[in-house]
């Protein structure tokens, strides 16, 4: 039964024109796992930021690349997302966080904001460089409460 599927994988071409596939996949996943809008929003945002970051800055060549996203859910509804890409080494945990969130508008730069979202929405993050791949593991805990809307 689809309801009992605890693992899902998406292999995404590293191309921003393919981002709709991420959105569609997450919508299906959240239906299957009965996740609320808040969970779908948070995962979509964190993953869009990570995937676009890799697409924009991760590759030194023009060859086609793929980003793999493995999703698993345990009995306490904790969701584990493993993102694997063959881009340049990039450890989000060592990346500068958005340091400008308190500055006035004129001094604000948007850089780092995506990473700030990932760190804010995810419960825990680990990074490894494995066989020339970046392997980022994210844990997301849905609140379980119904929508704020």
């Amino acid at each position: 039964m689809a309801q009992q599927s605890k693992n899902m994988t998406l292999v995404l071409p590293a191309d921003t024109r393919q981002l709709l596939r991420l959105q569609t996949f997450l919508e299906e996943l959240s239906q299957m796992w009965a996740l609320d809008h808040e969970a779908l929003f948070a995962m979509n945002l964190a993953l869009e930021e990570l995937v676009t970051n890799t697409i924009f800055y991760g590759y030194a060549d023009k060859l086609p690349h793929f980003i793999q996203l493995d999703f698993a859910r345990d009995d306490s509804d904790l969701i584990t997302i493993v993102m694997t890409d063959d881009g340049k080494p990039f450890n989000i945990l060592q990346a500068p966080d958005a340091d400008s969130v308190d500055k006035p508008a004129e001094e604000r730069e948007i850089g780092g904001l995506g990473i700030h979202f990932v760190k804010t929405f995810m419960k825990r993050i680990t990074y490894e460089r494995v066989n020339e791949n970046n392997k980022l593991t994210l844990w997301y805990q849905p609140t379980g409460s119904s929508q704020q809307l």
Partner: peptide
């Protein structure tokens, strides 16, 4: 701002209001 203009953003849905808050955008 550079031209003394006024920009207002309205009708933020709850999850987006939250993103604005995390970004520090509510104060600017």
């Amino acid at each position: 701002k550079s031209e003394n203009g006024t920009l207002v953003i309205c009708g933020l849905q709850a999850p987006i209001h939250n993103v604005f808050e995390i970004s520090g955008f509510l104060s600017i």
